[in-house]
């Protein structure tokens, strides 16, 4: 059944038992919304030099958006920024693949639980849900590292 390709057990597990949920002190905070459906996330990042020391978040939304934030936390916390960005880029590519990328071993090694979202990429209306926290992380990181002027509110494109 097609639904199972979207709602993989890994995703439902993250949804029911999210990793690192809750807001903790950080270097920057962003609030992103998905205006078409009302999914929202407030996300903070903390850096220890170039290492992702913490990603904390609070939000409301569907299982896909919430599970994705949990996976992000699990994957990125503790990584060097360069590695974290490589993961982010790979996830973005996977989500924009419209179901055409079949994750190979290398991708699975890089993305771990996040490969479970491959099925979501077939549903255009849900891709934004999966990307919400990742776009928020990218934005918060840029702000924390002083790469662009801080903005209080943002939208996931």
């Amino acid at each position: 059944m097609k639904l199972d390709s979207m709602y993989q057990d890994v995703i439902l597990d993250h949804y029911k038992h999210p990793h690192g949920r809750g807001l903790r002190p950080g270097d920057a905070e962003v609030h992103h919304v998905n205006p078409t459906c009302g999914d929202e996330i407030t996300l903070r990042v903390r850096y220890d030099g170039s290492r992702v020391a913490d990603v904390s978040y609070e939000g409301q939304g569907c299982s896909i958006s919430q599970a994705s934030a949990s996976v992000l936390n699990e994957l990125l916390v503790g990584k060097e920024l360069g590695e974290a960005r490589r993961i982010q880029d790979a996830f973005l590519e996977l989500m924009q693949s419209k179901g055409r990328i079949e994750p190979d071993d290398a991708m699975e090694e890089l993305l771990e639980d996040a490969v479970a979202f491959a099925g979501v990429s077939k549903y255009p209306a849900r891709v934004k849900c999966a990307l919400l926290s990742w776009m928020a992380w990218k934005d918060a990181t840029a702000q924390a590292l002083g790469e662009e002027p801080a903005k209080a509110d943002g939208k996931t494109a």
């Binding site: 639904l3 459906c37 939304g61 569907c62 299982s63 896909i64 549903y123 849900r126 849900c129």
Partner: peptide, 21 residues
């Protein structure tokens, strides 16, 4: 259960509803 998820599972059964605000 978030309305997005409700709508997705309903869609799988051919049922078209609106979800969101």
């Amino acid at each position: 259960i978030h309305p997005h998820d409700v709508g997705q599972v309903l869609d799988e059964q051919g049922i078209a509803v609106r979800v969101g605000h």
